[in-house]
Structures are given as structure tokens and as C-alpha cells.
């Protein structure tokens, strides 16, 4: 009896030990992991899963997405940064990579990441209800100036990129509004539609359904160039207010990945970016398809990190 039991145990151990050992060939020889810093279903997750499916075709190996949400993405960024630089672990790099250090969530930023490329951008948009008394950004601002703190503005959460955009607006236009933070743009827009707040700030794509239906109107897009989604809406720069911090999406690896692997990855992402599917996704989710290669993205991300580490402490004390 006992001996039979041991035999079963040994067979079980042997069976469970059969792991997928593969011969190391030219890169990539096994599946890649792409770590997403947000929960399944959001824009970061969609961008990552969609891109994963596109680069999979070019690389010829599976690219598996894994969600590691938490602390504005800081957990996922530090996790990827600590992985072996073999090119088999990638991470999604949203604007938060330039923000989390300034917020004090983790000591990680673009300088300890091997950035691959940037693939899209989402500017902020200021919306009010269709029946609101203000028809332009200027009218909204003068109302805010007349009674500082009177107007109530919903955003997607303290420390979120849309919150920073509204703080930048206050600073640039020298106005004061009262903030109502929500847990995400769908809630802040619901609050605006329901008449509980005066205005809301969100990503361009997030507001489009209710703008097209004539329930909301756009006062301004906080960016340099006009948004393809709202060709009629003026930008903050056009109106003479030089501010705007769009959200963006890119990808990164740990530091120290060999150059030829980075080249291989970048070309796969570039092919994915050029595909008709990507253009279509960007149109439908209200993103601007913008591409930056390795060096350009690195320069841009470092610049953003510097901007946020200077601005965030100042903006947050401004709100108090």
C-alpha cells in the first residue's frame, strides 16, 4: 500500500516537473509578457492588448498581457524596471511614468526605463452642458473670475492627468474653481450630465458620445493643435493660454536591453502603428495617432518628467 502511494507521489512530481523548456534561438524565441499598469477594460488596457495583438504578428511569438494595477501604475513600472533586461518583459508606458515620482508613489521614472516608442496621445477637453450660459472658453473664464471658487468642476481624480490639466488652466488663466474629484471620467461626466456640477474635464474620446448627441458642448481642447474629433473646438494655445498636458501611451523595457533587441521591438511596434487597424482604433477611441521613436520618446518623456516634478508640487499647493 505504502509503496504504491510513494510511486503515485513520484509520478505526480515527475509529471508536474515537465515544464516548457525551450531551446534559446534568435530573439524572440519564446512568448513576451506585456505588463499593463491598469485594470482590464480601460484605455491603457485596450491600447496594450491591441498593440500586443499587432506586434505578435510581426514577432511571430505570443505577446501576453498581464494587468498589475495599483498606485497610479507605480507598482507595474517598478516591477518591469526590476525584470531581467532580456527583452521578454515589456511594459505599457502612459503619461504616469513621468508623474508617479513627483507624487511620491515610487522612485521610478523615464530615466530608469528603456523606452521603446510612443504610439498615441489624448488631449484634455473642457465640457459643459448644452444649456450652460457660457458659449466660449472666455465666457467660462470670466464667470470664474467674477466669483472665484463659485464654479464647480468635476475631474477624474486627484493626481490624475485631467486634474493637472485643470490646475494648469487655473494657473494660466488666473482663475479659481472648486473641484469635485471622481473615480474616473465616466463618473465625472455623469455628474455633469445630471446637473450636479458646472463643468467637467476629460479625455477627448470620453466626452464624444454626449457632445455629438448635443447634450454637452466643448469649450476648449487643452493642446497645441486642433483635435481631429472636435475640429470646430478652439485649443488653449489658439486662445492665448499656453498650457495643456495631454495623456499619452508608449511602451518600455527594463534598462539594459541589447540594442539589436530594442531595434527589433521598435520595428515591430512601428509596423503595428502603421497598420490600418491601429488608425481605426485611434479614431474610434478618440486618440491621436502620434509616433515617436526611441530617441525622440526618451527626450520627450524626460522633458515631461521634469515638467511634472516642477509643476506638481506647486499646483497641489495652489489648490489648498
Amino acid at each position: 500500500m505504502r509503496r504504491g502511494g510513494w510511486r503515485a507521489l513520484i509520478v505526480g512530481v515527475a509529471l508536474s516537473h515537465v515544464s516548457c523548456h525551450q531551446e534559446e534561438g534568435p530573439y524572440p524565441s519564446k512568448e513576451l509578457k506585456l505588463i499593463v499598469q491598469a485594470s482590464p477594460g480601460g484605455i491603457s488596457d485596450t491600447v496594450s492588448r491591441f498593440m500586443a495583438a499587432l506586434i505578435e504578428k510581426d514577432l511571430g511569438v505570443p505577446v501576453v498581457c498581464e494587468n498589475k494595477p495599483g498606485a497610479s501604475g507605480a507598482l507595474a513600472f517598478s516591477y518591469v524596471a526590476r525584470r531581467a533586461p532580456d527583452g521578454y518583459t515589456l511594459g505599457h508606458a502612459p503619461v504616469e511614468i513621468a508623474v508617479v515620482r513627483a507624487l511620491g508613489y515610487a522612485d521610478v521614472g523615464p530615466d530608469n526605463m528603456g523606452l521603446i516608442c510612443l504610439v498615441s496621445k489624448i488631449p484634455a477637453v473642457l465640457v459643459v452642458r448644452e444649456d450652460a450660459p457660457w458659449n466660449s472658453f472666455e465666457e467660462f473664464l470670466s464667470a470664474a473670475r467674477r466669483e472665484p471658487g463659485r464654479l464647480i468642476m468635476a475631474h477624474s481624480g486627484t493626481g490624475s492627468i485631467w486634474h493637472f490639466n485643470s490646475l494648469l488652466m487655473e494657473q494660466a488663466a488666473d482663475v479659481r474653481v472648486t473641484y469635485l474629484p471622481y473615480g474616473g471620467s465616466s463618473q465625472s461626466l455623469a455628474s455633469l450630465l445630471g446637473g450636479h456640477v458646472d463643468a467637467a474635464i476629460a479625455g477627448t474620446g470620453e466626452a464624444i458620445a454626449n457632445v455629438q448627441a448635443g447634450r454637452l458642448k466643448v469649450l476648449a481642447v487643452f493642446d497645441k493643435a486642433r483635435s481631429r474629433l472636435y475640429p470646430e473646438a478652439p485649443t488653449s494655445y489658439e486662445l492665448g493660454y499656453e498650457f495643456g498636458a495631454p495623456a499619452w501611451s508608449g511602451f518600455f523595457t527594463p534598462v539594459g536591453v541589447p540594442e539589436e533587441i530594442l531595434d527589433r521591438l521598435e520595428s515591430a511596434f512601428h509596423k503595428g502603428f502603421e497598420s490600418a487597424e491601429w488608425t481605426k482604433l485611434c479614431e474610434e477611441r478618440g486618440m491621436e495617432a502620434v509616433y515617436m521613436g526611441r530617441d525622440e520618446f526618451r527626450e520627450f518623456a524626460l522633458e515631461q518628467a521634469e515638467f511634472f516634478s516642477e509643476e506638481i508640487p506647486r499646483l497641489l499647493t495652489l489648490e489648498r
Binding site: 482590464p40 477594460g41 480601460g42 488596457d45 465616466s186 458620445a209 455629438q212 477611441r285
Partner: peptide, 24 residues
């Protein structure tokens, strides 16, 4: 506007297929 978490994810899926949920 999603009424719960799964429907929030469904919005994303609808958008990918070119369907914009909303009054229109």
C-alpha cells in the same frame, strides 16, 4: 456611461466595432 464594471468594459468593445453608445 457604464452602470457597473463589466458594462464599462463592454463600452470599449463596442467602440472598437465602431459603435458609440450614447443617446444617438
Amino acid at each position: 456611461i457604464p452602470g457597473d464594471a463589466p458594462s464599462a468594459v463592454l463600452i470599449g468593445a463596442l467602440l472598437i466595432h465602431g459603435i458609440q453608445p450614447g443617446p444617438l
